[in-house]
Amino acid sequence: MGDGDPANIIELENVDKFFGAFQALKNVSLSVKKGERIVVCGPSGSGKSTLIRCINRLEEHDSGKIVVNGHELTGAVKDIDAVRSEVGMVFQSFNLFPHLTIIKNLMLAPRLVRKSSKSEARDTAMKYLERVKIPEQADKYPSQLSGGQQQRVAIARALCMNPLVMLFDEPTSALDPEMISEVLEVMTDLAREGMTMICVTHEMGFARSVADNVVFMDNGEIVESNPPDAFFEAPKNERTKLFLSQILSH
């Protein structure tokens, strides 16, 4: 416990990550305070997903330091399951458990990890299903829901663990355009309520309206990090300018 600034819920210091000979993260440093909302953007293959996957150790970094909620994630991490249970994650492809109904998707981790009683877990699950506005789908299977609904369920599933921070890995990239807004709406609500969030996304409107900081990555490096006004109006780096011109032009 007690590494770095205690106000920081997440701290990355000079993190490197290799996939074979390919360096996915180059000397990445980032700190996230409680309640802070970070949007990470950048071209594909720039290391955005790898970055947030390292934060809950779905990928192991090769060097540097990652501290999550006071736990250092280096070497063999014994309490990794406990750390992960405090960090919610939403994936691009939803990853709902196909063999479980929606309500059971939401109840599984609280029952097994938090040892909640059945009724307790059910109440929590229904509370969050109502927050993402699909309580009526509780007894259906994931395959019976639309993509947007599935992603909202995935957000609710993460929230059921009452996480300190939420990681979003391109949550709207696999969605049909008409479903993107319903997911962004839920994420925006969450941000307004003060949830600490790191979102990898290309939704620049979302970044503009909720982010405290927008981080631009390219080639495994953090190229630029600024509050949205400065980031969008006065990007400093040439690569950021190029990226923004490409992504905002359509």
Partner: peptide, 12 residues
């Protein structure tokens, strides 16, 4: 991805 989702939720 399903196993990762389980891991991310803190399941052993």
């Amino acid at each position: 991805g399903l196993k990762e989702a389980g891991a991310a939720l803190g399941l052993s």
